[in-house]
Design a protein around this nucleic acid. Structure first.
Lengths: 213, 213
DNA sequence: GTATAAATTGACTGGTCAGTCAATATGTCT
DNA sequence: AGACATATTGACTGACCAGTCAATTTATAC
């Protein structure tokens, strides 16, 4: 009853499902195929997961929370916002390159209607620390004064684009170079610039601090 | 014989499929539902599209090419690389906010295994002009010296993240503000910076920014 | 008009697959 | 040992759905 980690069958199912889903999509992967490939009976899958959707949701939640933990790793120890953020970036890259299946899974299903809304929301909640970090940066003037949500969105999407690009190249040296360039892109984008300006001509930042919704 | 626009039934099917797919996913949308909703018989759908996958592919191709055309709109007329790129950004934002369904469709299925590889590749080909634009920018020194593919990837993903964030806010004023800030983020990321550095090399950001206050 | 092709219909089918269930196994406590 | 809970099995089923097809309508040609 102690329960922790129960059966490894459950884990086998999750692991197999992850591989098959990324490769063939939810639709293209019958539950029977998952159980067969995982070396268990059909019934076993439905013993651990009430429905197929339950399996998908569980997988999504698990990966999302693991990813968040990975991004956060060691960040608190860093001294400044700038270094913290760079650390997050490096963590993200490391996570994605180490666990390509998980990364592709997220990439594919981040906007999928297969995944329940609640799972999506819960997934987001793990990344709140990032939002806070950004808010700190803006407050202390390291980051450019602008909508926090915007910074986060763009930060996240740039990171994922960067990662995707990096994974195209097999050579580790090349990868390191791209990583450096990409992170520098991102930093230049979010960092406060002394001369103000930027691209948008006038650029009035009279931030109406309206928190919508 | 003039032919243009053949049947509007075909268009109705495509339009309905678009709406249903974005809302319920490929899996969750039976062909029967599409045809019913579009006001045609099941057979008609399969008259115009050999299979369901064919329908999906066609839709994907169509939207992707429309999007590319929209992004390109008026760019050639602009004088400098900087303005051209800003124009592309504005076009992208305008396209996405005008056609939310199409945007969400792309967002959802850009990495989907449902879409055939050839369709994915063909889709990419429409965006070659962007790559060229970036290459020009790098050559003439406006953009930072680094891997073109990287610049493109990150440019594209930032834009899509920015767009997603913008669409969350209903207020046009707020949207405009976010757009300005977001585009400025991107420009700062890709632009060459006078103080050299850019991205390669050592990259010590020893900006000991003592916060004065 | 008649002939021929293109478009449209919807009842039907064959296969697939999520999920069930009764049987069986494995463990655990007394 | 028996009693009880928890796992595990895989044959089975009922629903669903992509795709067919013979029949019918509409357009075009001669």
């Amino acid at each position: 009853m102690s329960s922790v980690e129960a059966t490894d069958k459950r884990d086998a199912i999750l692991k197999t499902a992850l591989a098959l889903f990324t490769e063939r999509g939810f639709y293209g992967t019958p539950t029977a195929m998952i159980s067969r490939e995982a070396g268990v009976a059909t019934g076993t899958l439905f013993f651990y997961f009430k429905t197929k959707e339950d399996l998908i949701d569980t997988l999504y939640r698990q990966i999302k929370s693991q990813a968040a933990a990975a991004l956060r790793e060691g960040v608190d120890r860093e001294p400044t916002v700038q270094v913290k953020i760079r650390k997050v970036g490096e963590n993200a890259l490391a996570w994605a390159t180490t666990r390509p299946d998980e990364f592709r899974f997220m990439e594919q299903f981040a906007h999928s209607p297969f995944v329940s809304t609640t799972a999506h929301e819960e997934g987001m909640s793990h990344f709140l620390f990032l939002e806070e970090l950004v808010r700190d940066g803006v407050r202390e003037g390291t980051l450019r004064e602008c909508d926090t949500g915007l910074l986060c969105s763009v930060l996240a999407s740039s990171l994922s684009g960067l990662t995707a690009r990096i994974m195209e190249s097999p050579d580790p040296g090349q990868r390191a170079l791209l990583a450096r360039q990409g992170l520098s892109f991102i930093w230049n984008g979010i960092a406060a610039h002394p001369d103000g300006e930027s691209c948008g001509g006038t650029h009035k930042i009279t931030t109406t601090k309206k928190r919508s919704r």
